[in-house]
Amino acid sequence: MESSRVWYGRELLALAKEDPTIVALDADLSRSTMSTFIEQELPRQFFEIGIAEQNMVGIAAGLALNGMKPFVNSFAVFLTGRAYDQIRQVIAYPALNVKLVGSSAGLSDFGDGATHQSIEDISLMRTLPNMAVISPADHVQTKAITNYLARFQGPAYLRISRADTEQIFPDDYRFVLGKVDLLLQGDDLAIISTGTLTATALKAARRMEAQGIKAAVINVSTIKPLDKNDLLKSIGGNRRVITIEEHSIYGGLGSTVAEILIQEKAGYHLKIMGIRDLFGQSGESHQELLNHYQLTEEDLITAATALLSD
């Protein structure tokens, strides 16, 4: 198990060593977001903004307007929610080269409860023109995406979990914006997942395989701009599709996939799994919350079985 946020922080530091225009900003959470690596080793390329996310986003816009490549760090919930208007008005609208990195996404900040759990950030960022929205599934992908974003011109939102994850992607994985990852072939149904739940989807699919059910597993890290044709190609002949994400069922991966499939007139049966119009709450572990909100392997197998008997 590895920590995506640590891999993000290390990669950002490595990139900043090579490129003096890369700077990190944080709002008093650098030891959680892991911008602390850059803070400690390259203090000139780090700005502590204090507990002021709105100001931080505006400052990032100013830095980008003067040719810097700012990475803005905070918890996903504060960055995308508290500073939504700033992100809209001065980052997305002028299409500035600012990377917004939302940490502790989903339910991964289990103990702190609803105030700190971000289950609507994908929805908020996805609706903004010019904004890329990216949700990695493991530490390898997180590292690759961080590297990609350092060269990507324009605004992007990167969603990082606080939870440790199992390695899914090979060490030499290369990220391509918009492309999906077909991780497992299968022609009974397709499971489309993002973030931490891709590992869950893979485990569920392997268990189903033992029961004679062949599920394709497709990881979608680029929620936007998503290559529709690549997604449809990966779904292939499957007409039963389940999406699963650590996010509200409104506006996230499930909505993204639904918007695509419903316009295909191909008769897809779709089940969207996520957090059902509820706030999070405190729990003693991330897994306990995933159990409570019915986002486990067992829940996925139950949903798949129900969908197949439709």
């Binding site: 709105q54 505006g58 400052i59 816009a61 100013g62 830095l63 001065v90």
Partner: peptide, 13 residues
């Protein structure tokens, strides 16, 4: 309310 923040970023750059 947002212009001064952007000036801070520009001046830091």
């Amino acid at each position: 309310g947002q212009g001064l923040s952007m000036a801070v970023g520009m001046a830091l750059a």
